[in-house]
Amino acid sequence: MDAFEAIRPYSDAEVTPVLQRLLNDSELLNTLAHFRFPRLAPYADWALRPLIAWRLRREFAGINTVDALQKKIELYVDYTVEQATDGISYSGLEHLSAGQAYLFLSNHRDIVMDPAFVNYVLFHAKLPTPRIAIGDNLLQKPFVSDLMRLNKSFIVHRSLTGRREKLAAYQLLSAYINHSLIKDQHSIWIAQAEGRAKDGDDRTDSAILKMLHMSRKDESFAQVMQELHIVPVSISYEYDPCDQAKARELCIRAQTGSYTKVPGEDDNSIAKGITGYKGRVHIHFGTPVSHSPEEAKQLANQLDRQILSSYRLFPVHYLAYAQWDQRETDLGIPALDQLFKGSEIHQAQETWEKRLEACPEEQRPYLIQQYAMPVRNQYRLAAGRAL
């Protein structure tokens, strides 16, 4: 039995049977019916399911490899990008070589679209797409797990509670990531920390780096990290479709000390993150780690310097920073008209005011913080200050 059977993505040999299983999954067909026909589905999902299944069979006929499936899915990703963004730009591809497997470690703002945008850029650059780490908390329904594992996702067991179970799960995860990068020569995407950076403060959790070393404890930390060819990735959104929900969560946490998600909240965040307006999006691929320190925290700081300094700041970030009660007036931040055209500033002001007006007053400081934090981090770095 494959040692990584429980967490790995599906192989080419599994594509056809898994697709057949999905096309007969009533819960998936119901979900698609409600998404495609929201008004009709509550009354006639029994009639819509066969129609949707027939359409899917026709659409995915002849698909029997993961690469073929990704090429088909890319058409839908391209459509989503066109509908929900004002365009994607990217930089840093010159740091990558076609024959090398990389560990893409990125900041984390959106559940699905962060790795989707990385895939989008690499796919269109004709570079191999990575395997994607995804938490099992997002895979509550079997069809969701099947869909994600078909698309090169592997499972991170975050919902375990026992200490031994957690340790065993992270040991297996570490072994799988190292196996994928070194034995399979297949790249990996993983977020820099568990959970999205809801306050806009993108920081690498050193525990992630320690996990990568767990399965190779007999080797030095620095040597292992260098062999993984870690590439820090900055993903910048002009506007975050989930910013209001994040502000609400942060506000409730501040007021009560905790926050409990309601059923379906992650599903709503995924849907809004995919379809919601993002403005412009920029992806930057940093320089691969060639010399790692022996301490995980030192490496995390090294990665953060690349991720934070390469974050693309848009006018809305500066507008938010000017309103932030924690702004530092001595950072030497230029005036907006020195950085952007007047028309661009005017458009951003209108959009930002609408977002503020839509946010309850007690939650606005947390909305402002999300957009202001990247400005402070970047200019602190430029000034040589501690993060």
Rank of each mutant, 00 (worst) to 15 (best):
A175S: 13
L172N: 08
W189P: 00
I155R: 06
I190P: 00
L181V: 02
A169Y: 06
K166E: 05
I177D: 02
L160R: 13
I190Y: 04
R164F: 04
S174A: 10
I190D: 08
T161V: 10
I190F: 10
D184F: 00
I190W: 04
T161I: 06
K183W: 04
L181W: 10
Q185Y: 03
A193K: 15
D184I: 00
V156A: 04
A191H: 08
K166F: 03
I188S: 05
L173N: 07
H186M: 05
G162W: 08
Q171L: 13
Y170A: 07
I188N: 05
T161W: 03
G195S: 09
S180K: 02
S159F: 05
H157F: 13
R158D: 06
E194N: 08
H186D: 13
S180M: 05
A168C: 00
A175W: 02
G162S: 12
L173P: 00
S180W: 01
S159M: 13
A168M: 12
W189N: 07
G195Y: 10
Y170D: 07
H179S: 11
A191E: 12
A169R: 05
E165I: 00
K166Q: 14
I177N: 02
A193F: 01
H157N: 12
V156P: 01
I188R: 09
E194A: 15
Q185R: 15
S159N: 09
S187Q: 07
Y170E: 07
I182T: 14
H157L: 12
H179M: 05
I177V: 14
S187V: 04
A168D: 14
R158P: 02
L167G: 01
H157E: 14
A175Q: 08
D184A: 14
L181F: 08
Y170K: 02
H186A: 15
S180T: 03
Q192K: 03
Q171T: 07
Y170T: 03
Q192G: 09
V156F: 03
R158H: 06
H157W: 08
D184V: 00
E165P: 00
E165A: 15
E194K: 09
Y170H: 11
S180A: 15
S187W: 11
S180E: 11
E194C: 02
S174W: 12
Q171R: 14
Q192N: 08
H179R: 10
I182G: 01
Q185L: 05
Q185G: 03
Q171H: 14
R163K: 14
L172A: 10
A193P: 00
I182P: 00
I182H: 07
L160A: 13
R164M: 05
H157A: 12
N178T: 07
I177L: 12
H186K: 14
E194G: 13
I182K: 12
R158G: 03
L173I: 01
S180P: 04
Q171D: 14
Q185I: 01
S159I: 02
A168T: 01
I190M: 15
I188E: 04
E165Q: 15
S187I: 06
L160C: 08
D184C: 10
K183C: 06
H179E: 08
S180I: 01
Q192M: 09
G162D: 13
R163Q: 13
Q192H: 11
